Amino acid sequence: RPMNAFMVWARIHRPALAKANPAANNAEISVQLGLEWNKLSEEQKKPYYDEAQKIKE
């Protein structure tokens, strides 16, 4: 299954978030990633939607 825009973004940002929160488990990191993603504007998300579309094609 191809990655969606959030997954493209999260793949880039997960390592830094995990390093900054070494005690957090994957579920907690995923929740935090979701919160951070939701704070982004549509303009900030656009490159990730574009990349996800390329992956689908």
Results as ranks from 00 to 15, higher is better:
residue 47 P to A: 05
residue 19 K to R: 05
residue 27 A to E: 14
residue 24 A to K: 12
residue 41 S to Q: 02
residue 1 R to S: 13
residue 11 R to A: 15
residue 31 V to F: 14
residue 25 N to K: 08
residue 16 A to Q: 13
residue 53 Q to G: 05
residue 2 P to E: 14
residue 56 K to V: 09
residue 9 W to E: 00
residue 29 I to R: 02
residue 3 M to C: 09
residue 19 K to Y: 07
residue 53 Q to T: 08
residue 2 P to H: 13
residue 36 E to G: 04
residue 12 I to L: 08
residue 6 F to H: 01
residue 50 D to W: 07
residue 2 P to F: 14
residue 40 L to P: 01
residue 45 K to R: 10
residue 36 E to P: 01
residue 51 E to I: 14
residue 26 N to M: 11
residue 19 K to M: 11
residue 54 K to P: 05
residue 10 A to W: 05
residue 51 E to L: 12
residue 37 W to F: 03
residue 51 E to M: 14
residue 45 K to A: 02
residue 35 L to C: 05
residue 56 K to S: 13
residue 53 Q to K: 15
residue 2 P to V: 11
residue 6 F to S: 00
residue 10 A to E: 10
residue 43 E to C: 05
residue 5 A to R: 01
residue 6 F to M: 04
residue 55 I to Q: 10
residue 50 D to Y: 09
residue 8 V to Y: 08
residue 53 Q to V: 10
residue 45 K to F: 01
residue 50 D to M: 14
residue 8 V to K: 02
residue 56 K to R: 11
residue 12 I to T: 07
residue 13 H to L: 04
residue 31 V to R: 13
residue 10 A to M: 06
residue 19 K to N: 05
residue 45 K to D: 00
residue 33 L to K: 02
residue 27 A to L: 13
residue 14 R to Y: 13
residue 24 A to F: 14
residue 10 A to N: 04
residue 16 A to Y: 12
residue 14 R to M: 06
residue 56 K to T: 14
residue 13 H to Y: 12
residue 41 S to W: 01
residue 55 I to P: 05
residue 10 A to V: 11
residue 22 P to M: 03
residue 42 E to Y: 15
residue 43 E to D: 12
residue 23 A to M: 15
residue 57 E to R: 03
residue 47 P to K: 09
residue 54 K to A: 12
residue 56 K to N: 15
residue 4 N to D: 14
residue 36 E to I: 15
residue 5 A to W: 02
residue 2 P to S: 07
residue 37 W to P: 00
residue 47 P to E: 05
residue 12 I to R: 07
residue 39 K to A: 09
residue 25 N to E: 05
residue 35 L to V: 13
residue 54 K to L: 11
residue 7 M to E: 13
residue 50 D to I: 14
residue 51 E to K: 10
residue 9 W to Y: 06
residue 1 R to N: 13
residue 26 N to H: 15
residue 29 I to E: 02
residue 47 P to H: 03
residue 45 K to L: 02
residue 15 P to S: 09
residue 17 L to F: 15
residue 16 A to E: 10
residue 53 Q to P: 02
residue 8 V to E: 04
residue 43 E to K: 11
residue 33 L to P: 01
residue 57 E to K: 04
residue 56 K to L: 15
residue 48 Y to T: 01
residue 29 I to C: 02
residue 43 E to G: 08
residue 46 K to W: 06
residue 10 A to P: 00
residue 6 F to L: 01
residue 27 A to P: 03
residue 3 M to I: 15
residue 4 N to W: 07
residue 28 E to K: 04
residue 13 H to C: 05
residue 54 K to T: 09
residue 41 S to G: 06
residue 35 L to S: 07
residue 56 K to M: 15
residue 34 G to S: 13
residue 3 M to N: 11
residue 33 L to G: 00
residue 13 H to F: 12
residue 33 L to I: 03
residue 16 A to H: 11
residue 28 E to H: 06
residue 26 N to I: 10
residue 6 F to D: 00
residue 16 A to S: 10
residue 52 A to P: 02
residue 12 I to Q: 06
residue 9 W to K: 00
residue 29 I to W: 02
residue 26 N to V: 06
residue 20 A to C: 04
residue 46 K to I: 06
residue 22 P to R: 03
residue 53 Q to N: 11
residue 32 Q to H: 04
residue 52 A to H: 03
residue 17 L to S: 02
residue 16 A to I: 15
residue 43 E to T: 09
residue 5 A to C: 02
residue 18 A to L: 14
residue 48 Y to L: 00
residue 21 N to Y: 13
residue 18 A to R: 15
residue 54 K to H: 10
residue 29 I to N: 01
residue 31 V to S: 07
residue 38 N to R: 13
residue 44 Q to F: 05
residue 3 M to V: 14
residue 30 S to T: 13
residue 22 P to N: 04
residue 25 N to G: 11
residue 53 Q to R: 10
residue 2 P to A: 07
residue 52 A to L: 08
residue 14 R to S: 05
residue 42 E to M: 14
residue 41 S to D: 09
residue 18 A to Y: 07
residue 7 M to A: 12
residue 43 E to Q: 11
residue 56 K to Q: 15
residue 37 W to M: 00
residue 18 A to M: 15
residue 51 E to Y: 11
residue 16 A to L: 15
residue 28 E to V: 06
residue 39 K to E: 04
residue 30 S to I: 14
residue 48 Y to K: 01
residue 49 Y to R: 12
residue 1 R to Y: 12
residue 24 A to N: 04
residue 16 A to F: 12
residue 31 V to W: 12
residue 28 E to G: 03
residue 17 L to C: 04
residue 1 R to D: 11
residue 7 M to C: 12
residue 51 E to T: 09
residue 7 M to L: 12
residue 31 V to K: 14
residue 34 G to N: 14
residue 44 Q to A: 11
residue 53 Q to E: 13
residue 20 A to L: 14
residue 13 H to W: 11
residue 56 K to E: 10
residue 4 N to F: 08
residue 44 Q to C: 05
residue 48 Y to V: 01
residue 6 F to K: 01
residue 43 E to R: 10
residue 44 Q to Y: 04
residue 47 P to D: 04
residue 22 P to C: 03
residue 11 R to W: 11
residue 20 A to T: 07
residue 53 Q to A: 15
residue 34 G to Y: 15
residue 37 W to D: 00
residue 35 L to D: 06
residue 2 P to C: 10
residue 51 E to C: 11
residue 55 I to E: 07
residue 17 L to H: 03
residue 52 A to Q: 03
residue 5 A to V: 03
residue 20 A to Y: 03
residue 31 V to C: 07
residue 7 M to I: 13
residue 41 S to T: 13
residue 4 N to L: 12
residue 41 S to P: 06
residue 21 N to L: 08
residue 51 E to Q: 10
residue 44 Q to W: 03
residue 56 K to Y: 14
residue 54 K to M: 10
residue 5 A to F: 01
residue 39 K to Y: 04
residue 17 L to N: 02
residue 7 M to Y: 12
residue 28 E to S: 07
residue 57 E to H: 10
residue 2 P to M: 07
residue 49 Y to W: 08
residue 30 S to F: 13
residue 2 P to I: 09
residue 18 A to K: 15
residue 19 K to C: 07
residue 48 Y to P: 00
residue 5 A to L: 01
residue 1 R to K: 15
residue 10 A to R: 03
residue 54 K to S: 09
residue 6 F to G: 00
residue 34 G to R: 15
residue 36 E to R: 06
residue 19 K to D: 07
residue 50 D to V: 13
residue 3 M to W: 12
residue 32 Q to T: 06
residue 52 A to N: 02
residue 40 L to W: 02
residue 52 A to I: 08
residue 17 L to M: 11
residue 45 K to W: 01
residue 25 N to R: 04
residue 57 E to Y: 06
residue 19 K to E: 10
residue 21 N to M: 06
residue 15 P to C: 07
residue 4 N to H: 08
residue 7 M to G: 06
residue 27 A to I: 10
residue 29 I to T: 02
residue 25 N to P: 07
residue 9 W to T: 00
residue 32 Q to E: 05
residue 30 S to M: 14
residue 54 K to V: 09
residue 46 K to Y: 04
residue 22 P to L: 03
residue 24 A to G: 04
residue 15 P to M: 08
residue 44 Q to T: 04
residue 53 Q to W: 05
residue 20 A to I: 08
residue 38 N to S: 14
residue 42 E to L: 15
residue 11 R to C: 06
residue 43 E to W: 04
residue 38 N to A: 15
residue 48 Y to W: 14
residue 55 I to A: 04
residue 56 K to H: 15
residue 32 Q to C: 08
residue 19 K to L: 14
residue 34 G to A: 15
residue 44 Q to P: 00
residue 22 P to A: 04
residue 37 W to K: 00
residue 56 K to D: 09
residue 56 K to I: 14
residue 51 E to A: 10
residue 53 Q to H: 09
residue 6 F to A: 01
residue 15 P to D: 09
residue 11 R to P: 02
residue 45 K to T: 03
residue 24 A to I: 06
residue 28 E to T: 08
residue 14 R to L: 06
residue 41 S to K: 03
residue 20 A to S: 09
residue 5 A to S: 02
residue 25 N to T: 15
residue 2 P to K: 11
residue 3 M to Y: 12
residue 25 N to D: 11
residue 27 A to T: 11
residue 42 E to F: 14
residue 33 L to E: 01
residue 27 A to G: 09
residue 23 A to C: 07
residue 37 W to L: 00
residue 25 N to I: 04
residue 36 E to C: 07
residue 35 L to E: 10
residue 15 P to L: 07
residue 1 R to W: 12
residue 38 N to T: 08
residue 25 N to S: 15
residue 47 P to Y: 10
residue 2 P to Q: 11
residue 26 N to D: 14
residue 20 A to Q: 14
residue 54 K to N: 10
residue 27 A to C: 07
residue 20 A to V: 07
residue 3 M to L: 11
residue 42 E to W: 15
residue 16 A to C: 11
residue 54 K to Y: 08
residue 52 A to D: 03
residue 36 E to A: 14
residue 40 L to V: 01
residue 46 K to P: 01
residue 51 E to D: 05
residue 11 R to G: 11
residue 10 A to C: 10
residue 19 K to G: 06
residue 10 A to F: 06
residue 14 R to E: 06
residue 52 A to R: 02
residue 55 I to L: 14
residue 29 I to Q: 02
residue 23 A to Y: 14
residue 13 H to P: 00
residue 33 L to M: 05
residue 34 G to F: 15
residue 34 G to L: 15
residue 46 K to R: 10
residue 48 Y to I: 01
residue 39 K to W: 03
residue 45 K to I: 02
residue 39 K to G: 05
residue 45 K to C: 01
residue 2 P to T: 09
residue 34 G to I: 15
